[in-house]
């Protein structure tokens, strides 16, 4: 039982790291259609879209 819980926690940790890696290379959805983004001038974006 104990090894099962530990295995689950470790898998979850690997998942978190994997997601971080994926997110690092993926563009924020909210930015994709932004007109400023398209012109290459939006800078550090602070928009939080719901």
């Amino acid at each position: 039982m104990e090894i099962f819980i530990v295995a689950l926690i470790c898998l979850a940790a690997v998942f978190v790291l994997g997601r971080h890696l994926k997110n690092s290379f993926n563009e924020n959805e909210a930015c994709k259609n932004c007109s400023l983004r398209k012109s290459g001038a939006c800078g550090k974006c602070t928009i939080k879209k719901s």
């Binding site: 470790c10 979850a12 940790a13 690997v14 978190v16 790291l17 971080h20």
Partner: peptide, 13 residues
């Protein structure tokens, strides 16, 4: 609370 926690668990493993 996110990646550092996850990385610590992976390093421990």
């Amino acid at each position: 609370g996110g990646i550092i926690l996850a990385a610590s668990i992976v390093v421990w493993f």
